[in-house]
Every structure is written in structure tokens, then in C-alpha cells.
């Protein structure tokens, strides 16, 4: 505040002449921090918003609740292993995605609209684009924020399971050294599936300003494509004269199912044999990794293009 405070330019309030009161408004004279700082701010703000941080308690319930649900299988597995030994291993690192993939998609359906639709709904994109930030920066910051949140859901439960399994053992050090490749595999597979869910979710969210449409669209795409892919893949043509013809192009429809693609990619990382529909499809494991990355790339391209073109 300047030395002569508000009201210093006082005048007779009742007089007919005009008067201007100094309310202490000032110009910003500090350093302007530029594009990189704006990008970082937008990224961190988006990440916080993903978990409802800085919003009301009601906004935190769903994202943090979903994150907690993603941890449940790991905690159950650790509890069972601690009490009963490891005869049964229903929850493993290589099938963790098939258990919590639904949670990741619901998380994306809950959060991606906050990041991708909300600013369109409130017509505030122009406020961002008129700053040091470029359109692409905005899109990338949104993608990076959702990806980071998604990685937290994909990676933290698996690391809890991995480290917890070591701690339950009598000799954690030898377990960790025998399984030294696991952290890398968790990281690699987690990044692939998180990229896939993030790309798809934010692409759909960026196409509509309405949160309900975005949420519905994300869930509709994911689960209808899942049903479509599994059902087509379940069709096997009747054995013909060439009895050896057991495989069919229909089996490759697993690639339409985003869940099965993610599952196949994770199994390729951990080197475990595919089951059911994936076994029938008999595709090389890297094909699923490639497919997951292609879905992610399409999603990212849609997001970049949308925010490049949108009128703001």
C-alpha cells in the first residue's frame, strides 16, 4: 500500500463535483515469470484438482475413495500372505491391472472432465490462452496432470504389494535381490496402462464441455468396447475340413477391448502366459503393448488437436 492510504484524496462526498478515491490499487511491479512457470503452475494445479485438493470435501471423496479402493487388493493379499503363508496367490503383480483396471477407468471418468471439460463449460480457456501459456502447453499440462494422477493409482498399490511381500518374509533382503527386476517391470507396465487410460479419458473429456457427457462417454467407450471385443473374440467358426483351423480373425478382436489390451501388455512385461480370450487370440505380447501405446497416442493427438482448434 502506498504511503498515502485509501481515502487520502478525500473530497466532500456530498458535493456535486466528482472525486476519485485512492483505494490503494497498484500495478504489478514484480518479475514476470513466463511460460515455464505458467506451465508448471497449471500442471501442479491440475494434479491437485485430480484428487480434489483445494476443492470442497465433497470433491475429494470420489477420487481419493477410488485410490483407496485400488489399494484394497494389495492389502488383502498382504494380510492373507502374512497369516496363511503363500499357498494361494490370487493377487499378483501381473494380474493387478485386470483387478483394478475398472477403478482406473472410473477414476479417469471422474477426474478427466474436471481437467478437460470444466474450463470449456465456464468459458475460461481464453483466460489461459491470453497468458504466457500457449495452447499446446495447456493441453500438455492437462495430460501430464492426469497421467501423474493415474500413475499414482497404477504404481503405488503395486509397489505396496511388492515391498509388503518382501517385508512379510523372514528374509526380505534376499527376496528383494531375487526379484530385483520387478520394480522396473512395475514401472514399465504401469506407465503403459496409465498412458492408455489417460489418453482415452482426456480425449473424450476434451470433446465436450459437459461433465456428465464426458463421464458417460468415457465409461461408455471403455466398457462397451470391452464387451464388443470379448464377444467377437468369443466367436469361433465351426471346424471345417481343415480341422487344424482353430484360430480365427474374430479372436484378434481382443484388440478392440481396452481392458484386454492393457491386460495383455502387462502380462508381456511380467512374462506370464495369457489366459482365456488372450490365449485364444495367440498374439505376440508386444502387440498388446503396441496397441496400448497406439490408443494412448490417438488420445493424446485428439487432446492436442482439440485445444489447438477450439475457439476461445
Amino acid at each position: 500500500m502506498s504511503a498515502d492510504g485509501p481515502g487520502a484524496v478525500s473530497a466532500d462526498r456530498i458535493g456535486t463535483s466528482g472525486s476519485i478515491y485512492d483505494l490503494g490499487y497498484q500495478r504489478y511491479r514484480g518479475q514476470r515469470l513466463g511460460r515455464a512457470y505458467a506451465f508448471r503452475s497449471l500442471y501442479l494445479h491440475g494434479l491437485a484438482a485430480s484428487f480434489g485438493i483445494g476443492r470442497s470435501t465433497r470433491s475429494k471423496v470420489i477420487p481419493i475413495g477410488l485410490f483407496a479402493i485400488a489399494l484394497v487388493p494389495a492389502l488383502i493379499e498382504l494380510g492373507v500372505t502374512a497369516l496363511a503363508g503363500e499357498a494361494l496367490r490370487p493377487v499378483r503383480l501381473d494380474n493387478y491391472f485386470s483387478l483394478v483396471g475398472t477403478v482406473m477407468v472410473l477414476f479417469g471418468a471422474a477426474v478427466a472432465p474436471e481437467l478437460g471439460s470444466r474450463d470449456q463449460r465456464h468459458h475460461v480457456l481464453s483466460l489461459y490462452f491470453s497468458r504466457a501459456l500457449e495452447r499446446r502447453d495447456y493441453a500438455v499440462a492437462r495430460l501430464a496432470a492426469l497421467l501423474t494422477a493415474m500413475l499414482a493409482i497404477a504404481l503405488i498399490p503395486e509397489f505396496v504389494l511388492y515391498l509388503g511381500t518382501a517385508l512379510v518374509r523372514s528374509d526380505p533382503v534376499s527376496y528383494l535381490s531375487n526379484n530385483a527386476d520387478q520394480p522396473g517391470l512395475i514401472l514399465g507396465s504401469g506407465i503403459v496402462v496409465a498412458l492408455q487410460v489417460t489418453g482415452v479419458a482426456l480425449a473424450i473429456a476434451s470433446l465436450t464441455p459437459r461433465r456428465a457427457y464426458a463421464t458417460g462417454g468415457i465409461v461408455a467407450y471403455w466398457f462397451i468396447a470391452d464387451g464388443l471385443g470379448s464377444l467377437i473374440a468369443s466367436i469361433t467358426p465351426p471346424p471345417t475340413a481343415a480341422a487344424s483351423q482353430f484360430t480365427s480373425w474374430t479372436h484378434d478382436a481382443v484388440l478392440l477391448s481396452p481392458s484386454l489390451v492393457g491386460d495383455g501388455a502387462v502380462r508381456w512385461f511380467f512374462g506370464t502366459a495369457p489366459e482365456d480370450a488372450l490365449a485364444r487370440a495367440d498374439l505376440a505380447g508386444w502387440v498388446y503393448v503396441l496397441a496400448a501405446l497406439v490408443y494412448a497416442a490417438i488420445g493424446i493427438a485428439v487432446v492436442l488437436r482439440r485445444f489447438h482448434r477450439i475457439a476461445a
Binding site: 470391452d226 464387451g227 464377444l231 466367436i235 465351426p238 480365427s248
Partner: peptide
């Protein structure tokens, strides 16, 4: 697609269709 490619076990597959995509998802 099912009719064009296979057509085997129509009752079992139709039940899968009904439960697998219509009732659980759609």
C-alpha cells in the same frame, strides 16, 4: 458377426450376448 462367422451353440452364445454386453453394460 456371430451369425456370419459361426452360428454354433446359439442359445449359449445368445445368453452370453445378453449378459455380457446388454445387461451388464448397456
Amino acid at each position: 458377426i456371430y451369425r456370419l462367422v459361426s452360428g454354433e451353440d446359439p442359445q449359449g452364445w445368445s445368453a452370453d450376448l445378453l449378459n455380457g454386453i446388454v445387461v451388464t453394460t448397456l
